[in-house]
């Protein structure tokens, strides 16, 4: 139906595989040793985090936001994304379903220690906050020249 980007598709199957493994290890009902700052399953907004040799990519799936109301901050290796979204029902209508998140949210994402809080960029596109956090040089794999 759509042109399939192999890389993307591989990455999502990687996300899926990892999630299934975690579900198997800890049971889908919640992990006995969840990260102290992790959110309950199904919390808004969903977050994906990926790592590559140069940086961490954090994707916060928060559609319908005013980018100005988004608050992205980083302290040491803790990334915080906060904001407010209103999904109000107009007056004088009959409402059948209200499943969309309405209100304030805050999610704290613990990144690995080598995340550099001074080199963070965020942009908002198609309802996804994409945050790129560079890794500190020292921790990158280094190529050693052999003379």
């Amino acid at each position: 139906m759509w042109g399939m980007n192999l890389l993307e598709s591989d990455l999502f199957s990687e996300f899926d595989r990892m999630r299934r493994e975690m579900d198997q290890i800890f049971g889908a009902g919640g992990t006995p040793a969840a990260g102290i700052r992790s959110a309950a399953a199904g919390a808004f907004p969903p977050v994906n985090v990926g790592a590559s040799p140069e940086r961490f990519d954090v994707y916060v799936f928060a559609p319908g936001m005013d980018p100005g109301s988004l608050d992205v901050s980083m302290q040491n290796h803790l990334l915080t994304v906060a904001g407010q979204r209103s999904a109000e029902t107009p007056e004088g209508v009959q409402s059948y379903r209200r499943e969309r998140f309405d209100g304030e949210f805050r999610r704290v994402i613990t990144l690995p220690e080598d995340a550099d809080p001074d080199r963070v960029e965020a942009r908002y596109q198609d309802g996804v906050v994409h945050i790129q956090v560079q890794r500190r040089e020292s921790s990158r794999p280094r190529r050693i020249e052999v003379h």
Partner: peptide, 8 residues
């Protein structure tokens, strides 16, 4: 890129 964490 490798996945570290995924809700989606």
């Amino acid at each position: 890129m490798k996945a570290l964490y995924a809700d989606l």
